[in-house]
Design a protein around this nucleic acid. Structure first.
Length: 263
DNA sequence: ATGGCTGGTAGAACCAGA
């Protein structure tokens, strides 16, 4: 058996942040990296830079300016499909078939705007609808799958710096947490982050750019996740959050997360 | 309690992120 490392990172512009992506790939050496918020059309994706580091297999679903996802890999993979769970043309998902037959889904769930109310803020309703459609998809999904990405929901009290102060803040509201819980139950998804770092231990993947000192204030949230089908979850051997990347030059506001599988 | 920052694109008294 060998170890396969899968990483996920909301990079907040893959072109602007190419130097730190390259540094991460050198340091962490994942076999596969799933990116969200690439913010570029596929024709301008820095394909040659990734290929130069050995990540020659690339699946791209980008768009101009916003959103965009990609999977770059040192092992062969083929595209299965790309869902548009908002039915509005936004590039938020791509899925791959891995060499061992496993399925890998990379998703960027909508942030949902500022106001946690469907009527006052249509983006919040779109976010809930997106999760609802992923729940219907999860119910039907019958193959061993790893689902990673920026879910933009921090479900547990220990996933945020202050449960009480974030109850009305989009990403941690009870309605979002309930929707994500329903999605998790629909396939029996195993939360790999919490399998290896059980609550109530602190586990964050995002810190706002607006803090003067992100590490000192430590007002983090766990917005990025890796889930696996029950049988596949048993093959996971380690999980890491690369918090140091938040302090790198020109950082993303998210950090990369990695799970190792014994495949 | 509020405001605080960032990238892309346009050239903003912008938008979107979360």
């Amino acid at each position: 058996m060998a170890i396969t490392r899968i990483a996920s990172w909301n990079i907040n512009s893959v072109r602007f942040r190419l130097p730190i992506v390259e540094q991460f790939l050198r340091d962490a050496a994942p076999d596969i990296l799933c990116l969200q918020e690439t913010k570029t059309i596929d024709a301008e994706f820095p394909a040659a830079a990734f290929a130069a580091l050995g990540y020659t297999h690339q699946l791209l679903n980008g768009q101009r300016m916003h959103h965009g996802v990609a999977i770059v890999s040192r092992v062969p993979l083929t595209e299965i499909e790309r869902h548009d769970w908002q039915a509005n043309g936004e590039a938020r998902h791509i899925a791959a078939r891995l060499p061992g037959g496993q399925r890998l889904d990379n998703v960027y769930i909508p942030a949902g705007g500022d106001i946690p109310d469907r009527e006052a803020n249509p983006k919040f309703g779109q976010k809930l609808d997106f999760v609802e459609r992923m729940t219907r998809w999860s119910e039907m999904l019958a193959e061993p799958t790893v689902l990673v990405g920026d879910f933009n929901i921090a479900p547990l009290e220990a996933d945020v710096w202050s449960h009480k102060q974030l109850l009305d803040v989009v990403s941690h509201t009870p309605v979002e947490v309930a929707a994500l819980g329903a999605m998790q139950a629909a396939h029996g998804w195993v939360d790999l982050g919490r399998r290896f770092v059980p609550a109530p231990a602190r586990l964050y993947t995002w810190w706002s750019y607006r803090a003067k000192d992100w590490a000192a204030s430590d007002r983090g949230r766990r917005l990025d996740h890796m889930w696996a089908s029950p049988a596949l979850a048993e093959t996971a051997t380690a999980h890491h959050v690369h918090e140091a990347c938040r302090s790198w030059l020109k950082p993303s506001d998210h950090i990369p997360i990695v799970t190792e599988f014994d495949w």
